[in-house]
Simulated scan of single mutants.
Amino acid sequence: MAIFSRNTESAQAAVTKAEATVTDWEGKAAAARAEALRLDQESGQAILADESAAERIALNVQTWKLKANAYDRAAADTRLKLLRAQREVLEAEARDEDKEAAALRKKGEAHSAKVDGLKRQLQELDDCDWERAYIFDSVNGSIRGQHLGRAGQLDQDAELHAVRAAVIRYFLATGKIPHDYYEVNNVLGLSFRGFGRSIHDQDNIPQSVRDAQAAGLSFVE
């Protein structure tokens, strides 16, 4: 169900680059600390062998510790950039979902207009009203509803994408996956119909949101 535009792909590329940079800085920091520890542990024998080397050895150890601290700070700064990039990926994905929802709604409206035109012609031809067929319960024969038709299905598909966009924005705002439609409506000021429906049906929760929650990401300021 994921939709990826160029903006989404660009944001994901920034995440990948930031992740690699963090790993690089963390590796350099670990190596520098290990070198400082090695020199410190070997300093005793080296100083006993040559007392004049004490100042040089101490300076060398301190230099490696300073390097490790500098790499740690660089890693921390890059983690902040990584978090911003991860947020931008989710924001771009939400925009893509919005665009897909809008495109499907427009297609549904165009199809409805075409059906309405043909329906008028049919009613004029047959001199009576025409409606979509009802859906009957296979057990007791009671009416369960009316066929949606293609336009109805397009509207449902459009809402699915709109819900996915809302779930992403809800996660960005709260750091949580919503339990129901009412939570999304309350936080984002929307009006999805929630009665008798679970937001966890179908594919309403994007995998990107599940992955972000599993990774412990939080964008709540």
Rank of each mutant, 00 (worst) to 15 (best):
I177A: 12
L118K: 12
S142L: 05
G117E: 14
I135D: 12
E124V: 09
H200V: 05
S43Q: 01
L39A: 15
L217T: 01
A29D: 08
L160E: 15
V22C: 06
R210V: 10
E93N: 03
L37M: 08
A49F: 03
L118C: 13
S52W: 02
E93M: 07
D201H: 12
Q62K: 13
A74V: 04
D155V: 04
G141Y: 12
F219D: 00
I135N: 10
S191E: 14
A31C: 02
A11V: 02
A58I: 07
T63I: 12
R56W: 07
N185M: 05
K107S: 13
H111K: 11
S198W: 05
S191M: 09
F195G: 06
A212R: 10
V163C: 00
A85G: 11
L190A: 05
A110Y: 15
H179Q: 14
D40L: 12
E19M: 07
F219I: 02
P206W: 00
E19R: 13
A31E: 12
G149W: 02
C128N: 10
N7D: 08
V209G: 01
G145E: 11
F192R: 07
H111M: 14
S208E: 10
A113S: 05
G216M: 13
Q207H: 07
K67A: 13
Y71W: 10
S43Y: 06
Q62I: 06
V89M: 04
E9G: 10
I47A: 01
E124D: 13
E159L: 05
I135C: 04
G196I: 10
